[in-house]
Design a protein around this nucleic acid. Structure first.
Ligand SMILES: [Mn+2]
Length: 563
DNA sequence: ACCATTCACTCATGC
DNA sequence: ATTCAAGTCG
DNA sequence: GCATGAGTGAATCGACTTGAA
């Protein structure tokens, strides 16, 4: 794998190396996905002179696709005019020949407009840029033409990037930032996986990306409409939403794409709901089981107790989403009275303390409590979701980065691509179980913690947030937590890594023989369902965890007690 | 996935 | 003169 | 007091240039 150094003194064309690495990777591994004319274009590009390719690579990193020829200067590229001609011949660049008064204006700075005499109208020189452009475009003021080129084949480039990364949003930046050491990725054998296996799947991915973009826009509209109702705009929006819904493709076999579809259905359902189109909303929610689809369906049909009950049972059976589960519990309890105890877990009470504190708004409340503990000679850290997930990510490093089929497709992945799929554990069950067995030995565990922390520090891992953790912290927490508790926490994490990574208590307070977890609640802040779920779980596992509610205190009184 | 997404937090309503 | 946002670059 | 839904703000690499306000 030939990733070169970014150092411009030794390698002034580093960006071209990146681009060509990507293009060659794609045309090599995704030959059957690319269309014939796409392959031909790529071949034509790769056959160009070094100068031409370098220029195209430079322009590709820039935001607009129109460029003033007189402004294109790159010291490392010689004979730019010639490179431009060459790129025009292979249709990677296009001269703007038709009169484009708009560009002749907008691509000039104010100073330039002034020096070609365009701002002589009184007051115009002081006006806002937008106003000037507007005024000049319709005036008969003569404005000299600029020599402008438009970059072509940007679409092809984004197709290649999409294929390379397996998603539409990562781009060439990753190469630079990785070479600069801003991010470090685990090196994984990529030979077992390709992002897309055929054109059909890939086209579906691109379609879904477009639909999602559209749906997000409509969702924003629906929110605005709620603020300021407008019956006509509402009807128009409803029509657009219906159009979008009718374009929804059949459920894809590819998990990453069906996840996208799930999100789309939720987005659509939510928009319909906001506009009061209950039936449409329900039918969208029916397209997916992703939370909170079932809860929304139930709420929208609250008058039909049979449906509500069926949905709630489904939730209890299948969902890991705390807020959905809490809804289902309440609903069923409410309907069936008390005789539902079979399903409910006995709930340990969550310890609660209340204090008053002079609150400093400029600092977040958690940090203030940390300082209070510091004043008492205790170490407290605000690490929220980084403690146990971090420990998990470290101890199970090898399993997480196992290069099984479908997990890794390119060198810039922070974790396996199927991490958030229901089968993440199943596809690695043997390895996970073997690891659990090994880690049951506390000496081995301690050993591994130290080794892995040293070996992997700084390497991106979806569970480890390096700035927030330290070996000392991990060591102390690990040795002071019974393995049974750790194992239970890790297994819960594994059930739904996305959902269960959130909701841990804010603070860890370190004491000599033990530690304590505390969820801070400032004025107006309430416990959320997933926080309650973790607190109860942790307490049930014998870990000291509690809540601390803060009430604002008038200035000037002092001291608060935290035993 | 940088006019986008995600999350924790915060506020406003209605019971 | 300064501040600010967008864009560029490694 | 409670539940709910909507809205906020911070954080996404960081230094540097440019043009506009
Ligand atoms: Mn909190």
């Amino acid at each position: 794998m030939a990733l070169q150094s970014t150092d411009p003194t030794t390698n002034p064309l580093y960006y071209l190396d990146y681009l060509e690495f990507l293009l060659e990777f794609v045309s090599d591994r995704y030959r059957n996905v690319l269309l014939v004319e796409e392959t031909q274009s790529l071949d034509r590009f790769l056959a160009c002179s070094l100068n031409a390719r370098a220029l195209y690579g430079r322009l590709l990193t820039r935001k607009p696709s129109y460029f003033r020829v007189d402004k294109i200067t790159y010291p490392e590229i010689s004979d730019i005019p010639n490179a431009i001609d060459e790129l025009i011949r292979v249709e990677f660049l296009e001269p703007v020949t038709a009169p484009r008064r708009d560009l002749d204006i907008s691509m000039r700075s104010k100073a330039e407009l002034k020096s070609c005499g365009a701002l002589r109208v009184p007051g115009l020189a002081q006006a806002h840029r937008q106003v000037i452009d507007q005024a000049l475009i319709t005036s008969d003021q003569d404005i000299p033409k600029l020599m402008i080129v438009r970059q072509r084949k940007r679409g092809l480039m984004s197709i290649c990037q999409h294929l390379f990364f397996g998603n539409p949003h990562q781009h060439l930046d990753e190469f630079v930032r990785t070479d600069l050491g801003h991010q470090v990725f685990e090196s994984v054998d990529l030979s077992l996986s390709r992002s897309f296996l055929d054109r059909e799947t890939f086209d579906l991915a691109r379609l879904l990306a477009v639909l999602k973009h559209w749906a997000t826009e409509l969702e924003v509209c629906s929110r605005q409409l709620r603020r300021s109702p407008d019956p006509i705009a509402r009807l128009d929006l409803l029509r657009q939403l219906a159009d979008l819904k009718s374009l929804m493709p059949f459920r894809s076999k590819m998990p990453s794409l069906s996840r996208l579809q799930d999100k789309l259905y939720l987005l659509l359902g939510q928009s319909f709901e906001r506009l009061g189109a209950t039936d449409d909303a329900i039918s969208c929610y029916r397209g997916t089981t992703r939370p909170p689809s079932r809860e929304r369906q139930a709420r929208l049909q609250s008058q039909n107790t049979d449906i509500v009950r069926r949905l709630c049972f489904e939730i209890l059976e299948a969902s890991t989403d705390a807020s959905e589960l809490s809804y289902a519990h309440k609903q069923l309890k409410h309907e069936n009275g008390i005789r539902l105890n079979g399903i409910q877990h006995p709930r340990p009470p969550i310890p609660r303390r209340d204090i008053t504190l002079e609150i400093d708004i400029s600092v977040n409340i958690e940090q203030q409590i940390v300082d209070v503990y510091k004043g008492q000679g205790l170490t407290a850290l605000h690490i929220e979701n980084h403690l146990f997930p971090g420990l998990f990510g470290l101890l199970f490093w090898e399993v997480i980065f196992l290069p099984i089929q479908g997990a890794f497709h390119h060198p810039f992945e922070r974790g396996p691509a199927d991490l958030y799929e229901p089968d993440f554990y199943n596809h690695r069950a043997q390895m996970f179980e073997a690891r659990f067995n090994m880690l049951a030995n506390s000496e081995y565990r301690a050993d591994q913690l130290g080794l892995l922390f040293g070996a992997k520090q700084g390497i991106t891992n979806p569970f480890v947030y390096w700035p927030a953790v330290s070996l000392d912290l991990f060591s102390q927490v690990m040795t002071q937590t019974p393995w049974s508790a750790l194992e239970a926490i890790f297994r819960r994490l594994l059930k739904d890594p996305k959902a269960f990574r959130k909701g841990f208590p804010d603070l860890v307070v370190l004491r000599a023989e033990t530690y304590e977890l505390i969820e801070i609640k400032g004025p107006g802040d309430r416990l959320q369902n997933h926080q309650i779920a973790w607190l109860e779980f942790l307490i049930a596992q014998g870990i000291t965890a509690s809540t601390l509610f803060i009430t604002a205190e008038e200035p000037r009184s002092n001291e608060c007690e935290l035993s």
